[in-house]
Design a protein around this nucleic acid. Sequence first.
DNA 1: AAAAAATAAGGATAAATATTCAAACTCATT
DNA 2: AATGAGTTTGAATATTTATCCTTATTTTTT
Lengths: 154, 154
Amino acid sequence: MKDKHLRLEAIKIIISSREIGSQDEILQELLKEGFTLTQATLSRDLKQLKVAKAASMNGNYVYVLPNDTMYKRSTSVKPVKEMMQTNGLLNIRFSGNIGVIKTRPGYASSMAFDIDMENIPYIIGTVAGDDTILLVLEEGAPKETVRRQIQALI
Amino acid sequence: MKDKHLRLEAIKIIISSREIGSQDEILQELLKEGFTLTQATLSRDLKQLKVAKAASMNGNYVYVLPNDTMYKRSTSVKPVKEMMQTNGLLNIRFSGNIGVIKTRPGYASSMAFDIDMENIPYIIGTVAGDDTILLVLEEGAPKETVRRQIQALI
DNA sequence: AAAAAATAAGGATAAATATTCAAACTCATT
DNA sequence: AATGAGTTTGAATATTTATCCTTATTTTTT
């Protein structure tokens, strides 16, 4: 419904404002805010928000938002190429003369650096955010060729 | 008994070396490593290690290790509705298949995060600076629809 | 060395969470 | 309108995970 965006915002706020250890508790809070939904829907919302459930210092479980989360997947800093192998390049898509590469959070800029270093033909330049890289291609550049080059880099 | 420490190390290595989505899977891996234990024990181990289960970008669930320190917990007591007014969207313009959103300084990245989370159709990726977000749209995407979706989000 | 306390673990089960399935709804297009 | 593709949801259920209860083992204290 149209409530969904509001509800997701509400969930984020609830989770970050106090320690909550189960979906039922979140449901209670949402109800107070005027959102009625079932646990099934909440479970899906949490998945979409990438909320994690972790053990807290008090011996309880607590839901945490990805921003607050200081979780990372690998303990050592690996070179980009290796990282792409283990963690997987999430995907590359094209639209017009722009390519979009999705990466794991935090890895975009180092990956973009590697791409720049490779001097792949047809790629004029790259811009990286946190988990997304934009590739600007020459007009009429063959996208499949570029895709293959990027993938070869992995 | 004195294996416990070894086992905890093994769990950390397993979790950080590949994407694992359930305790049973971890049990399989541990078994290959020569550790025999039950799910009950593993559950306690994970709690002790403060391992969290979170949704990954691939639509699966994944266990992740905590970074060194505590959880950050932003304590905002504002009511939900009020907090949602404070997001500073200034304007949206399009050029070709690129959209440009101007925000109040500092708001771009969190707003881009929200846009990403919503999985709005036609938007294949975003990159945020401090007060600007670039949206890359699918070829031929209906710009007014996208504009409405973004505005609905706020 | 024995008693007491603490830790570790499994089996069984409770509790919590994810998913399946079907229904209701929204839009874009014909 | 009508169609169809894509979302969103709840009810029921399957799956997963945490905990209760008990026993065994180690560690500490007397």
